[in-house]
Amino acid sequence: MRRRLHNTGTEPVTRYLARIAVDRYPGEPERSNALYRSRPLTFDELQLTAHCGDEPMTWTVKHDRDAFKEVWLEFANARTRFPLYPGQETEITYTYSVSEALWGRWFQRAVRLPTRQLSVSLAFPATLQPTVWGTESSLTATFAPLRTPAERTEDEGTAVFTWTTLDPPLHARFRLEWHLKSDTPEQPEESAPVPTPSTLMTQAGIVQEGDPVLTTPARPFDLPAEADQAHAAVQALLDGIDRVRALHTFGKGMGLAAPQVNIARAAAVVIPPAADAQPIVLLNPSVAEASTEMDRQYEGCLSFFDVRGLVPRPLSVVIAHTDVDGTPRLTRFEHGLARLVLHEVDHLQGLLYRDRMDPGTEPITVDEYRGTGKNWTYS
């Protein structure tokens, strides 16, 4: 992996977050989960190395799961430190190895930072007669073919497929997949039981119903004094959202509150359904004003994702919240976005949507629900 980085901020950058995710059987999560439970990916086999220019970079582990790793690549080594200061540019590279038994024949890159150019090259022995194709997806769009094909070249028995895009939108995901000619077709493994939606959310690190943190009001931040803690909570939420979105399509948008990642502080992030929308960060939020006009729509909760509940909510709401620097804000949200925000504010008050449902009504199972992947509708 090669990244050219430009520090456009006001503080020196001292580390870079690198992610390694594997999926041997895309589209078959239960089969992949069974494989990685019995044969987890390890750092020993990854043999991860990183460099900033000619300088080796040390690294520290942030997350270590069976099929998902995150590491901080440090702009430092045992001999020296080399932060990336405001206005400076540099190139970092990092390499790792994964066996075909664990990797799968695909490569995916999500655009999480403003990016000028994304380029992917795949090299195969030409004797394997490789073919390559690709797809693109976003927060609200399902997989669609790449707008341009991968270009193929050959050099001394190696077939190289290269695909490039300029100025990719934030939160876009690009996937390249390949097929190789094989004389010995893969033998199917014994099928594993299909995990429930709640099981998948548990594996993604989402706290499940019954944990006391979900029914305890979250502690507000003292801002700006606790700005570092607030930043850390928001980053944990964004990381959790990335893990969850890899498992489920959210046509209505989605949100995540800090208690759901076991952080008992008043922070939440909401992802609007629009493809180009930026995450909405809410610190110390509370309802300042709510419309008397309401509607009822089905909601899901990542902390008990096997059911959907019909929940009454105001059609318009004003939320009081605080910037990291302590500046108070009032923001109005309407319709589906108001519903998403109120759901997360409830979490921070120790409430679940079951507490908001009309008396005598109960959630329905996912199998009964017909709105998965579709936005709410309003007249």
Rank of each mutant, 00 (worst) to 15 (best):
Gly326Thr: 11
Val98Tyr: 07
Thr327Ile: 08
Pro312Asp: 12
Thr142Gly: 12
Pro363Phe: 08
Ala264Lys: 02
Tyr378Pro: 04
Arg3Gly: 00
Gln229Phe: 08
Leu118Val: 04
Ser97Leu: 08
Pro279Cys: 12
Thr331Met: 12
Leu330Thr: 12
Ile263Tyr: 03
Pro359Leu: 10
Leu118Ser: 06
Thr10Ile: 10
Trp376Tyr: 10
Leu214Asn: 04
Glu177Gly: 14
Val307Asn: 09
Arg37Trp: 08
Ala274Ser: 10
Phe143Gly: 05
Val269Pro: 03
Phe68Cys: 01
Arg79Phe: 05
Phe333Pro: 05
Tyr378Leu: 02
Glu334Cys: 11
Lys181Phe: 05
Ala123Ile: 01
Thr93Leu: 00
Pro188Ala: 09
Pro149Phe: 12
Ile263Leu: 15
Val366Cys: 04
Pro363Ser: 10
Thr292Leu: 13
Val234Gln: 03
Leu46Met: 09
Val98Ser: 10
Ala288Pro: 06
Thr80His: 07
Thr249Pro: 00
Met57Thr: 04
Cys301Tyr: 12
Ile206Met: 04
Glu177Thr: 14
Lys69Cys: 08
Pro168Cys: 08
Thr58Gly: 15
Val194Ser: 11
Trp163Asp: 01
Ala290Thr: 02
Thr58Glu: 15
His321Asn: 14
Gln117Phe: 02
Phe68Lys: 01
Ile280Met: 12
Pro259Met: 03
Asp276Phe: 00
Ala18Ser: 13
Gln203His: 07
Gly253Thr: 05
Pro312Tyr: 13
Leu351Cys: 01
Asp54Ser: 11
Val213Gly: 03
Ala264Gly: 08
Val366Phe: 03
Val324His: 06
Ala258Arg: 02
Thr292Ile: 05
Ile206Ala: 02
Thr95Gly: 12
Arg370Val: 11
Gly104Phe: 06
Ile280Asp: 02
Glu368Pro: 06
Tyr36Ile: 05
Gly240Met: 02
Thr377Tyr: 07
Ala274Trp: 04
Arg4Val: 13
Arg24His: 04
Thr184Ala: 13
Phe143Pro: 00
Pro193Gln: 08
Pro29Ala: 03
Pro193Asp: 08
Phe304Thr: 01
Pro83Ser: 13
Arg265Tyr: 05
Leu223Tyr: 04
Arg339Met: 03
Ala126Trp: 01
Leu223Gln: 06
Phe250Met: 11
Leu315Ser: 10
Ser182Leu: 05
Gly134Ala: 07
Arg370Asn: 10
Lys252Leu: 07
Phe333Met: 06
Leu302Arg: 11
Ser316Val: 06
Leu214Lys: 05
Thr58Cys: 08
Asp346Asn: 09
Asp54Met: 03
Arg116Phe: 00
Asp228Ser: 15
Asp358Leu: 14
Leu176Tyr: 06
Val307Ile: 08
Pro188Phe: 01
Glu190Ala: 05
Glu189Arg: 15
Pro40Arg: 10
Glu289Ser: 10
Arg37Cys: 02
Phe68Tyr: 14
Met254Asp: 07
Tyr16Ala: 02
Ala204Tyr: 02
Trp72Val: 01
Phe143Ile: 00
Trp106Ser: 13
Val13Trp: 09
Arg339Ser: 03
Leu146Gly: 05
Leu302Asn: 09
Val324Pro: 04
Glu186Trp: 14
Ala172Thr: 01
Thr331Asp: 15
Val98Gly: 12
Ala233Met: 01
Arg112Ile: 06
Pro312Ser: 14
Asp355Met: 09
Asp44Glu: 14
Gly350Ser: 06
Gln229Cys: 05
Ser119Phe: 00
Val270Ile: 13
Leu139Asn: 15
Arg31Gly: 02
Arg4Gly: 12
Asp228Gly: 11
